[in-house]
């Protein structure tokens, strides 16, 4: 519960106006996202416009999810706003891409030890999965999974 223990002391009693503003901004973002998503309200301006822009962003996250996991499993994947074009699987592409991820983990070793270990574990698990036929299903599923991942990352940054 450590994440929640300081909210009441610094957020809601008003001793830190920036924190209070941050909570208001997040609540406003939540309200706008709900209004733009609900079928009852998203037929009207400006929610229909916001919905169209947001859906475009979601489609890009979806295709980037497919493309990223395609590269992880050694397929050169070209994402477009509608589809991702995967090419044949090449072991060289897989080695180079995963080598790049491991180099990124090495670069992160002093900045964030958790992220460094996380990337190494990810590369190891994906390397094992790539030896089985299940890699194809993971590549397919990670369109939707990529949306959840990107949504979570954006919410965390916010």
């Amino acid at each position: 519960m450590s994440a929640f223990k300081n909210i009441s002391s610094t957020g809601s009693n008003g001793d830190n106006p920036l924190t209070k503003k941050v909570y208001i901004a997040v609540l406003a973002a939540l309200a706008l996202a709900v209004l733009a998503n609900l079928p009852i309200t998203n037929q009207f301006f400006p929610f229909n416009l916001i919905f169209a822009i947001g859906t475009g962003g979601r489609a890009i996250c979806h295709e980037l999810g497919h493309a990223f996991f395609g590269w992880v499993f050694g397929q050169i994947s070209i994402p477009t706003p509608m589809l991702t074009f995967p090419f044949e699987r090449e072991i060289m592409v897989q080695l180079v891409f995963n080598g790049g991820l491991l180099f990124f983990a090495y670069w992160l070793r002093d900045k964030s030890r958790e992220a460094c270990y996380g990337i190494i574990a990810f590369v190891a698990v994906m390397g094992l999965i790539s030896l089985t036929p299940y890699y194809e299903y993971i590549g397919l599923y990670m369109g939707q999974g990529g949306e959840a991942l990107m949504g979570g990352i954006l919410l965390y940054i916010g």
Binding site: E147, M150, I157
Partner: peptide, 14 residues
């Protein structure tokens, strides 16, 4: 606001 909006929107839409 922008990051939180897009994050919530994508998760909610999905």
């Amino acid at each position: 606001f922008l990051y939180a909006f897009f994050g919530i929107f994508i998760l909610l839409d999905s």
